[in-house]
Amino acid sequence: MSVLEGPREEWRRILHEGQPKWVKPDRDRLILGDGREVAEAEATYLPPCEPSKILCIHLNYESRRVEFRAPQQETPTYFQKPITALNSHRGSLIRPSGTKYLNYEGEVAVIIGKPMRNVAREDTWNYLAGFAPGNDVGNQDFRDTDAGSMLRVKGMDGFCPIGPGIVSGVDIRKATLRTYLNGKVVQEGAISEMIFPIDYILADLCRFITLLPGDVIMSGTPKNSRPMNVGDLVEVEVTGLGRLSNRVAEAPAPQHKVGHQPTDTDAVRRVALGSDWVRSEPR
């Protein structure tokens, strides 16, 4: 059955007595498989899937394309986040000491349910476990290195929180995404605004890459991605899916001073500050 139809169903994953457990939310309680209950507020969340890969699309909302004055593209391009970037609802987002531009990017995370290879666009919905709010966090201070792969910008530990759970039975194509920073809406975009819809992305990727159950596809962010400060609460809400919350914390700078150091160049600011920087650009 298509993930877009049927009754809404949500599964979350928590750490319970030292073990990962799948639970179903019921108001302020989480119900374990054996019928026991945990207070939602006290639960320790785990990421709601165990992916073999996290694939992400570059620019995919028209509002962000215009914000960055990017040309229209015939076909999309992608990048990867390492599995170690996976994070959960209420997990901390760590900004290394000595860096400045830790940006939020509210996104819809698509979670694969069945192995996918060579699937037509119209059939892709039958292969999904569900959707979750996600945050494609980036440390733009490392924008000047890694030649466009963004390995460190987007790949640091914990830079891919998704959750609180996986939701099926929601027509994601009609939903709206909002990012809140300390309670204030900072991003808002309808999923219908996507340049390349979710079914397009899936069909495109699985022509050559087998997508496996638990794999995560990050589907892009609307305009107004901006840096967060230490202590900020960032929340990504997708209507029908719920709200993912994470707080920004700071960690000591790396112990060993090798390799590329954070930079604060025009190229860094252009991405970190979006149109706030673009508009102030001297002509």
Binding site: S63, T176, V185, G189, A190, S192, P222
Partner: peptide
């Protein structure tokens, strides 16, 4: 499920 701000709403088409 719709955006609550007019520009985002219009962008939704």
């Amino acid at each position: 499920q719709l955006p609550r701000e007019m520009c985002a709403f219009l962008a939704a088409g």
